[in-house]
Simulated scan of single mutants.
Amino acid sequence: MEKRLFDLTKMAKFDTNEPQKVMVYKSEHTIAGMWCLEPGQEVFLHVHPNADDVWVCLEGESGSYFVGEGKEVPISKGMVVLAEPGQPHGMRNTGNDRFVFIGFAAPISIETERLDK
């Protein structure tokens, strides 16, 4: 059972120098990674040309979700965001507390292309 149950509270890792991505699991079809951001840290704007990327916000009251073309929308704990293949996305912790979200992506293998803001 241990490969089917994950305690995210014990997996979170933070670094004041850079955002941390913790691998939660990888199966034949999907992958999940947990992002742990200190205030001001961000996940760069990017696209996955071949995969959906769903982010579930677990902790944090003030984030900014990048949707491309210089546009950002506010996000917070309890929200879910979807980037379909080719849709730009990224995120910045704009609050004073830590921000944690888990990303689920499929199908794998996932291509990632970094974009300029």
Rank of each mutant, 00 (worst) to 15 (best):
N96R: 11
L58S: 05
H48P: 05
L115N: 09
S27V: 07
K26F: 04
S76G: 12
G90F: 02
G40T: 07
E38G: 06
V47E: 02
Q41K: 03
M79S: 15
G90H: 01
A106R: 02
V81I: 14
L58K: 14
W55A: 14
M11T: 04
E113A: 07
G103I: 13
V81A: 10
E72Y: 11
M34Q: 03
P49R: 10
V73Q: 03
P39Y: 01
C36P: 01
L58D: 06
P74K: 05
K77H: 06
N50V: 04
A83G: 07
G103M: 07
E38W: 03
V24H: 09
F66A: 12
R114A: 12
G68Y: 01
H89L: 05
P49I: 06
P88G: 06
I108K: 03
P107C: 04
E38M: 05
A83N: 00
M23T: 13
S27L: 15
K117W: 09
V73G: 15
V43I: 12
P39C: 02
V24C: 05
T9P: 04
T94A: 10
A12P: 01
L37F: 04
V81F: 05
V24M: 04
K3R: 12
E72L: 06
P39W: 00
K3F: 12
G90P: 03
F14W: 08
L58N: 11
I31E: 02
V67E: 01
E113V: 15
P74L: 08
D53V: 05
E111W: 02
D97I: 09
E61A: 10
F101P: 00
A32G: 11
V80I: 10
E2C: 10
F104L: 15
V81P: 00
L115G: 00
P39A: 05
D53I: 08
E2S: 15
E42P: 07
H29M: 08
V67S: 06
P19Y: 10
I110D: 03
V54M: 12
V54D: 03
H46N: 15
N93D: 01
W55N: 13
K3V: 14
D53W: 04
P74A: 09
Q20I: 14
F66Y: 11
D116S: 14
H46F: 05
R4G: 10
T112P: 02
K3I: 15
V100F: 00
D53K: 13
R92S: 00
S62A: 15
D7K: 13
D52S: 11
R92N: 01
R114F: 10
S64A: 10
T112S: 03
G60T: 03
A106L: 03
P39G: 05
P49F: 04
T16Q: 09
V24Y: 04
T112Y: 03
V54P: 04
D97W: 07
